[in-house]
Design a protein around this nucleic acid. Structure first.
Length: 521
RNA sequence: GGCCCCGUCGUCUAGUCAGGUCUAGGACACAGGCCUUUCACGCCUGCGACACGGGUUCAAAUCCCGUCGGGGUCACCA
């Protein structure tokens, strides 16, 4: 039975790199018909774990990465919080002490540091002298008589080597002698991550440890612990890390300033920020930026687009397949085809997947996901009047691929404003509406509209062209002026769609308002 | 610095294990053009990479050696 886990620390947000790691675990597990579980690494966390965990669990749910065991659903091997499993770790530490794989160490921090710096100065690898090691109770009493207290250290082998058979990286070798005697339990009895992690993986019957490559150098000590405890070793797969946009450095949440200098990153960020502002979202760079999953949910991205982008970050099926549904991902995913080299996070490419998925989304769903943005921005009261549904549908349909994320509906907010709320783009108004002859043309066009029997885009198109022929003008002579008059903007939907959506009455009102403004200013 | 990992267009990648079909393929981005009532879409074209140096071989992106470069990790953090 394949069992995998993802072990987030409750940090308050879901990092995009973490999601990639979780996704690979999830895909592999679902494909193998195994179980995927969440374990909360909160051994070091003092305060408010629940609050810091909530956004993470929420992010997983939003993306549709479901877990079979873990927080808020429990499971047969719980609890799934490391802070609640201390007794297990302490028991393991006792067992390692008893079997001679660990020892009580009475060195002070200063003594330890001194040895380490001495080694550094002599340019030799640091190997602890074990001067304050106590293997017998008598030795322990002697140190304690000096007022010392102890930590528990691993008694690492000092010869031979370890060969790890990693599913991604192949065989990787380490010299045992170069592995220091790591602390596994503090003087106060609390235990450290590596011990906890190994003990839990065994307790949870984890078969495959799929994690980021920064853990590769931690693996020898974990294998030592596992073997000393008589555990069966899991299969290891160390994923390349996700790198910064345009560099090979590891993607980090704390270097936002640097990423903002990348034009692509800045663009995607600004786009999201703009939407956030319009819906009155209070954002801070710490919690709202393209490195954090929340960003995408709040701006109106599609989970499937994000997953599709992420699965290609370090994995590929072949030389051309790029679009994968969830089921196809599960079906085709394999550890063998994971890349060894790190992959840079490219928000622009993520965005392009979003475009493709949005394009394929049925109108009905687009309407459903855009409505909340109009509500939050205050253009629609809630609950919305039923007439709004039809108009929204028309806008969404006419906007077509112009709505790339749900929040982009706000670009077309002028269809949901009162006529007198339209704010004109000044330079466009100058150039198009105040252009010589434009007002007169619009007035003639207005008269033509009034006599229109039908007011749909197709017949408006035809009548308009007849009008232009009769007036001996080009489309450009009138279309731009009308668009500015109708929406306040120089760019937007097709003119005939715009008219049809607004309807005769609003169209006339808006033309009149623009005409009046042109002559009075 | 020690140890470990990695190195194909700006980016994601195919090709490397089983050398020839690779004058290195696809995608994103970028540039130009077409379409067009604006924008967006779409279409066409272009730009653009085997880190370097030796070897082995009839033949190397692929195998071997070395160099360089990048990264990760070296805690009583996770």
């Amino acid at each position: 039975m394949v069992r995998t886990r993802f072990a987030p620390s409750p940090t308050g947000y879901l990092h995009i790199g973490g999601v990639r790691t979780a996704l690979f675990n999830w895909l592999f597990t679902r494909q193998q018909g195994g179980q995927f579980l969440l374990r909360i690494d909160d051994t070091d966390q003092q305060r408010n774990v629940d609050a810091a965990l909530a956004p993470i669990l929420h992010g997983f749910k939003w993306l549709g990465l479901d877990w079979d065991e873990g927080p808020d659903i429990g499971g047969p091997y719980g609890p799934y919080y490391q802070s609640q499993r201390l007794a297990n770790y302490q028991a393991a530490a006792r067992q390692l002490l008893a079997s001679g794989h660990a020892y009580r160490d009475y060195a002070t921090t200063e003594e330890m540091t001194a040895e380490r710096t001495a080694a550094e100065q002599e340019k030799r690898p640091f190997v602890y002298s074990r001067k304050w090691m106590a293997e017998t109770d008598a030795e322990a009493r002697a140190f304690e008589a000096q007022g010392r207290s102890y930590v528990v250290r691993l008694k690492m082998p000092r010869e031979g080597k370890l060969v790890i058979d990693d599913q991604v990286r192949g065989q990787v070798e380490f010299e045992w002698a170069l592995e220091p005697d790591h602390v596994i339990q503090r003087a106060d009895g609390t235990c450290l991550y590596h011990l906890a992690s190994v003990v839990d993986d065994d307790a949870f019957k984890i078969s495959h440890v799929i994690r980021a490559e920064e853990h590769l150098s931690n693996t020898p000590r974990q294998i030592f612990i596992a073997q000393s405890l008589g555990y069966q070793l899991p299969v290891y797969a160390h994923l390349p890390y996700v790198a910064e946009p345009g560099s090979k450095n590891k993607l980090s949440k704390r270097k936002l300033d640097k990423y903002l200098k990348n034009p692509d990153f800045a663009k995607v960020n600004a786009h999201g920020l703009n939407i956030a502002q319009r819906i009155g979202l209070t954002t801070s760079a710490d919690t709202f930026n393209p490195v954090i999953v929340d960003f995408y949910e709040q701006v109106g991205y599609l989970p499937d687009a994000i997953l599709n982008y992420l699965v290609l970050l370090g994995w590929s099926l072949d030389d051309k397949t790029e679009l994968f549904s969830r089921d196809e991902m599960i079906q085709h995913f394999s550890l063998e085809r994971i890349n060894k080299a790190p992959a840079s996070f490219d928000p622009k490419k993520l965005f392009s997947f979003q475009e493709r998925y949005m394009l394929a989304l049925p109108i009905k769903q687009k309407v459903a996901m855009t409505l909340p943005y109009l509500q939050q921005a205050g253009y629609v009261t809630s609950p919305p009047p039923c007439s709004i549904g039809e108009r929204l549908r028309m806008v969404v349909e006419a906007a077509a691929d112009r709505i790339k994320v749900a929040g982009d509906i706000l670009e077309f907010a002028d269809f949901f404003m009162n006529d007198e709320q339209i704010v004109y783009d000044e330079s466009a108004f100058e150039k198009r509406v105040k252009k010589a002859g434009a007002v007169e043309l619009m007035q003639k066009y207005r008269a033509m509209l009034v006599s229109a029997a039908t007011f749909d885009a197709a017949s408006l198109d035809k009548r308009s062209h007849d009008f232009m022929t009769a007036e001996a003008i080009q489309p450009g002579d009138i279309v731009h002026a009308l668009r500015v008059a109708l929406t306040g903007k120089a760019v937007g939907l097709g003119l005939f769609d715009t008219l049809a959506i607004l309807g005769l009455e609003q169209s006339l009102t808006r033309i009149d308002r623009a005409v009046a403004r042109a002559s009075s200013t």
